[in-house]
Simulated assay, not measured.
Amino acid sequence: MQTPSDTRDLPPVFETLVVIGPGLIGSSVLRRAKEYGGLARHVIAVDKDPAVCARVAELGIADEVTDNAAEAAARADCVMLCVPVGVMGPVAAAVLPAMKPGAILTEVGSTKVSVIEAISPYLRPDVPYVPAHPMAGTEFSGPDAGFATLFENRWCLLTPLEATPHAAIEAVRTLWERCGARLRDMTPAHHDRVCAIVSHLPHLLAFTICGTADDLADETRSEVLDFAASGFRDFTRIAASDPTMWRDIFLLNREALLEMLARFMEDAQAMARAIRWGDEAYIVDRIERGRKIRKSLIENQQA
């Protein structure tokens, strides 16, 4: 794997970058800025939880830590919202009035149509807004979960609005490129359908299958836990993800998610019929298609 490049000698993308919500994604951006440089000359972490602020300060991953989002935003050249999608609107409402003209607002929400709708009422014509979604993560959360190479060779999807100035889009694009990410532009609605199948539906299935296992009779459940093979362990890793974050994602991307779930259920029923009636050709075809997808992921360095 290629070693991440040190961008410390490059002019910073922003003088002051404010990261609101230093969880897995936010703290990884902070670490990237501190360890590799090139993102901002001064980074400020913001969180309403005093314990989180204290931990970020202890970790030393920001130049400044505060619980005052508006005060920090007033000094920012870029404000990045890394909070759960369900609170993007209220947080944007709190910081946008304080931002200076020309400063950029961006966020990392996993749903785009709902987040853009939540933020749009508070937008200002002199503060460009660039929605983004880094497709990277783990099942862990909080400031200790982040690491500087989280975004290395992972996709970051940009869904800029039609009126967004080109210079603002390019600044956010450069920031993510310097985090090591690959960039792709798409519309918000298309983003939500893509993420519904590649991210949101797999999480829904993982939470559901783990719930099914937990609902089994006590003796069977203990055997499930004792003899869990790698397949079930993979589900439990995904199911360990933050419940508040995923509750918001499911509810705020419900239309695309329910569409993909309906298509999956049709395919699952077709597989059930093939197993019932011994349709070996259908079963083998589905397995081979799965193997091809896995091979493609490995070739694209996404596995």
Rank of each mutant, 00 (worst) to 15 (best):
A40V: 00
A148M: 10
F250L: 05
R294H: 05
A118C: 02
A167H: 14
Q301V: 11
R221C: 05
L216K: 08
H166V: 13
A74S: 15
R75S: 12
L201Y: 09
A274M: 01
V91F: 01
K100H: 12
L205N: 04
N253F: 04
A270G: 09
Y129H: 11
R221A: 12
I293S: 14
I238F: 10
I298Y: 14
V130Q: 07
L161K: 00
R8H: 13
M271T: 12
L225C: 09
R294E: 05
S120D: 10
C53W: 07
F232Y: 14
E259A: 14
H133T: 01
L158R: 02
D126V: 09
A103H: 06
V198E: 09
W246T: 06
I169G: 01
R31W: 14
V95E: 00
S222V: 13
L157C: 04
S28W: 08
T174M: 13
F250S: 11
V198S: 13
T7F: 15
L24H: 07
L17K: 03
G290P: 01
G231E: 01
A163V: 12
R193W: 11
E177M: 15
L216I: 12
I20A: 08
A168F: 07
K48M: 12
G37P: 07
N68Y: 07
R193D: 14
P97I: 08
